[in-house]
């Protein structure tokens, strides 16, 4: 049975599916437009571990989850996370961690050269920066996050 038949308005001569996905899952992956750039970015900035955490969150936390039906991974949180990641300078010696908060936000954390925590929680509308070294904690609208990071986390 072609399980996708009702959603496939045409078939090609090779009987490939008409969807955007890869017709034969395996070692080669096809991406939605723009996805390949995201995958490259997260791999280059957070390594295989960070990439794996992101895949885990997006695959497994898309609906209500946990004992209190916590919120699913927020698409807008992901957008802000990726746009920030593109310009963020994470020290080379740092090993970043990635978490999912109960509000469905991505949280990126690493330790500075003195072992003090640097944490950014990416929300749908606002984001939060925490710098343990300065005892600094601030929540700003997402549009102001780039300025805050430039000011507080200079390259």
């Amino acid at each position: 049975m072609d399980i996708l038949a009702p959603t496939a308005p045409y078939t090609t001569s090779s009987h490939f599916l008409s969807g955007t996905g890869d017709s034969s899952p395996g070692r080669v992956r096809c991406f939605e437009p723009g996805e390949a750039a995201r995958e490259r970015l997260i791999l280059s900035k957070l390594g295989k571990s960070g990439w794996g955490r992101w895949q885990y969150f997006r695959q497994c936390f898309s609906g209500g989850w946990g004992e209190r039906r916590q919120k699913p991974l927020s698409p807008r949180s992901q957008e802000v996370f990726f746009s920030t990641l593109a310009t963020l300078d994470i020290p080379e010696q740092a090993t970043p961690s990635l978490f999912l908060t109960d509000d469905g936000h991505i949280e990126l954390a690493w330790r500075d050269a003195d072992g003090r925590a640097v944490q950014i929680e990416f929300g749908a509308a606002t984001s939060e920066l925490y710098l343990e070294s300065e005892g600094f904690e601030a929540t700003v609208p997402n549009r102001d996050l780039p300025d805050l990071l430039r000011e507080r986390l200079p390259a």
Binding site: T11, S74, E79, S83
Partner: peptide, 29 residues
């Protein structure tokens, strides 16, 4: 997606030809 060898169901009849399949999308933000 452009394809010059597809089969499409049109009015209950299968016809061979080409498709011009255009998808435009926006991200969450």
């Amino acid at each position: 997606i452009l394809n010059n060898s597809v089969a499409a169901d049109i009015g209950g009849q299968v016809r061979n030809g080409s498709i011009f399949d255009l998808d435009l999308s926006l991200g969450a933000g």
